[in-house]
């Protein structure tokens, strides 16, 4: 598990940590049953306050991705295993919506790709 935080970023440190863990659940680096390092160790390594890490862990718990137990640390839940599928499904849904919008404007596939490239070169 790799976590990078940048204090200079406008995103809060806890959100950065939670986001990186979510991302690694989505790409399969983290899987159900995996244990996350104790908040204290992580805070020490990242040179942030332990409560910042705990806030990130609590946010993930509230999303049902993490199970926090006293003495057993933080463990990825079974439900988190569905995150990649959920995200893929959501992405496909959005692509379909995008294709629909393009069809309304009479854009071909190539013109749509050109539009996408215009936004993010």
């Amino acid at each position: 598990m790799l976590i990078r935080v940048d204090p200079a970023s406008p995103t809060g440190l806890a959100e950065q940590i939670a986001g990186q863990i979510r991302g690694q659940l989505a790409d399969g680096t983290l899987a159900p049953g995996d244990r996350l390092p104790p908040a204290r160790d992580l805070a020490h390594s990242l040179d942030v306050n332990m409560h910042t890490v705990l806030r990130a862990y609590a946010a993930l718990r509230d999303e049902g991705l993490l199970e926090l137990r006293r003495g057993r640390g933080a463990q990825i839940t079974q439900a988190a295993g569905e995150l990649p599928t959920t995200l893929a499904a959501r992405l496909h849904e959005q692509i379909r919506a995008l294709l629909g919008a393009a069809a309304e404007l009479g854009l071909t596939r190539e013109q749509l790709l050109a539009e996408i490239r215009k936004v993010t070169p």
Partner: peptide, 12 residues
């Protein structure tokens, strides 16, 4: 590259 001030940890 890590930007100046950026912190990182890898656990495996």
């Amino acid at each position: 590259r890590l930007s100046p001030g950026e912190r990182a940890v890898w656990v495996g």
